[in-house]
């Protein structure tokens, strides 16, 4: 029985050109530009534009037309020409997409908790922002691979304190 050894992945190599990706992008761009153009034709005009002015639909229709034209050209090029190289980009690493997805999820959770503003517990009004921020940073550090317990606790506490003093107390922004 022979063992197939997979070829090592060169993490420094740029991503490979992809026709599928280029076509998908062009199709999405075309769909969005068509939607924009269609919505432009439906802009509700409450009154005629005053003399020396154009109505609210004119400029969006111009842009929609240019956008559709550019997207169609992009789609045609994506279909008939070889896909462009992607040397200017770095390859997506294993776990990279997960890091981004978890970051987005944790951030949405943080914003949701922050929006509650404060809770009343045991007769005291407790502002959630400092606790939410410290926990948020702790989770981010954990997701990004930090395993140093001092860093995981001290850094979020220090940054949260700095933000609270600077924004909440000095700049008087209602956090």
């Amino acid at each position: 029985m022979t063992t197939v050894v997979p070829a090592p992945i060169d993490t420094d190599a740029p991503p490979r050109p992809s026709r599928a990706l280029e076509v998908t992008f062009a199709v999405i761009a075309l769909a969005m530009c068509v939607a924009y153009f269609t919505l432009s034709t439906q802009i509700e005009l409450r009154r005629e534009a005053p003399p020396g002015q154009l109505d609210a639909r004119f400029w969006p229709l111009v842009l929609g037309t240019i956008g559709v034209g550019a997207s169609v050209a992009l789609l045609v090029i994506a279909l008939v020409r070889p896909p462009a190289n992607r040397d200017d980009l770095e390859r997506i690493q294993r776990g990279g997409s997960l890091r981004v997805a978890v970051t987005c999820a944790v951030t949405l959770g943080y914003v949701a908790i922050w929006s509650v503003s404060s809770i009343v517990a045991l007769g005291y009004r407790i502002e959630l922002f400092p606790f939410a921020t410290a926990i948020y940073m702790f989770l981010l550090l954990l997701v990004y691979g930090l395993r140093n317990w001092i860093g995981l606790i001290a850094y979020p506490v220090a940054v949260t304190g700095f933000i609270y003093v600077l924004f909440g107390m000095l700049l008087r922004i209602p956090l």
Partner: peptide
């Protein structure tokens, strides 16, 4: 060009100053 047009499109969102019509 598409990027520039997308930016211009984003700039049309809101109230049109000349007529106060709302767009997008």
């Amino acid at each position: 060009i598409l990027a520039g047009v997308i930016g211009l499109m984003l700039g049309t969102v809101g109230t049109y100053a000349a007529t106060a019509d709302q767009r997008f």
